[in-house]
Simulated assay, not measured.
Amino acid sequence: MPVSPELLKQLLRKQKDKTITDREMVLLRLYLSTPEAEEQLAGIDFSDMPDAAGQPAAPQEVRFRQILQGLPRKPVRKTTWYRLAGAAAVVLLIAGIGMLLRQGGEASSPVPMLTLQTGNGELKEVILPDSSRIFLNARSAIRYPAGFDGKTRTVQLLQGQAYFDVKKQETPFTVESREGMQTIVLGTSFTVMADSVAGHFQVAVKTGKVRVDRQQRAVATLLPGDGVFYDIAKGLARTMHADPGSIGEWTEGEVRLSGASFAEMADLMQQLYGITVTAGNAAVRHNQYNLPVKYGTDPRPLMEVICMVNGNHAEWRKDSTAVIIR
């Protein structure tokens, strides 16, 4: 998203006057390092910018570099339990720039939609313009606007699972999924799982109150600890209950299997690593599993541990995309 010369110069002036906020400073530095900023150089006059007075005339690109070098740097705190890709930083930059544009009264084009996705064993977090947070589970994808218009707060869960910690406002917050599924809240925390292949949809509530609809018709109203599993093909809903404290535990980078069935273990390996796990005999299908699974673990030694729990062994395909447990 290009920034107007006026806004760019306004931020630089605020930096010179020491009135710029920490957030504006971060956005300014991020924007000045993008290709879009370079493309704007030819059309911006920096002669009245900080430290320009009294200096000999210089090409605009040189002045731009002088200004950039004069900006103070702030340390960046790194996360420790998951990897936040560089693309996510760009996403946050675009969202923040969009907010600055709207605050300055200069936004005239539609708010762009952004997409965030994760790979095998990967977690990502995004902070929305309203300060709500989304944690995206492995092999999942969401689509959301760079800014909210004050009338609606809507994001789309394209595939997989996400945990939402929604900032309470009068404007409802809606999670849309395929096949017309909607999860509507005002301010709460909950998880949504959408499996477009199997045609399953699931919501579990940690705090607050959540309404689940399909094609504008109510499916369930959920309170803390409540959940609903919806079979889209059959149009059937099944309610569930769980300890609210256990909902969204995977956001800490670990899943604990507790009395999990073979099918549940296999689903987890598919979600985290894209590995298809099958049972080599009927006895294996009745196994139960009790162990923690950390994100980012090498799947081969992890599968060896999983097999040892019940005295089994693993037979891998050569491309490591599938394993048979016998």
Rank of each mutant, 00 (worst) to 15 (best):
Q270S: 07
A314K: 00
A218F: 06
A279D: 06
G225N: 07
V277C: 01
N281W: 14
P301T: 06
A279R: 03
Q271M: 08
A314E: 02
D231E: 14
A314I: 00
P292C: 11
A279M: 04
V305N: 07
P244E: 03
G311T: 07
L268P: 13
H313R: 03
S261E: 13
A233L: 13
V255D: 05
I232L: 15
T297I: 09
E304V: 04
V284R: 01
T276Q: 07
Q216T: 12
D298I: 01
A220R: 15
D231R: 15
P244H: 04
A263W: 12
V255Y: 08
H286Y: 10
K234Y: 02
H286L: 12
T278G: 01
G248S: 08
Q270V: 02
G235D: 06
G296D: 00
N290L: 07
A242Q: 15
G208F: 11
D267K: 15
L302D: 06
A263H: 12
H286G: 03
C307T: 04
A233W: 11
G227W: 10
A314G: 01
L268E: 09
P244R: 02
N287Q: 11
S258Q: 15
G311M: 04
I247E: 02
S258G: 12
H241L: 05
V277I: 10
L302V: 02
N287K: 09
V255M: 08
T251W: 02
D213F: 14
H241K: 14
Q271T: 12
A282Y: 01
N281P: 11
E304N: 03
G227C: 07
R285P: 07
V277F: 01
A220I: 13
G208R: 05
R217M: 13
V309M: 11
M308R: 12
E249S: 13
V284P: 02
E264I: 10
D243H: 07
L302W: 00
G208L: 10
F229I: 05
M240S: 13
G311W: 06
Y230K: 09
E252I: 03
S261R: 12
K294D: 06
M308F: 00
M265K: 03
K234H: 04
T297K: 05
G245A: 14
G296K: 05
R256Y: 13
T276C: 00
T221I: 14
V228I: 12
G274V: 03
L222T: 09
M269W: 05
Q215E: 15
W250Q: 08
V293F: 04
R256H: 14
K209Y: 11
R300Q: 08
V277G: 00
L222W: 07
T278N: 04
D226N: 15
I275T: 00
V309K: 07
F229T: 05
R300P: 00
L223M: 13
G227E: 09
R256S: 15
G235E: 06
V293G: 04
K234P: 01
E264D: 15
N310Q: 05
F262N: 09
N312P: 01
G253W: 10
G245Q: 14
A260T: 08
M308G: 01
K294W: 08
P224L: 10
A218N: 12
G235P: 08
G253E: 04
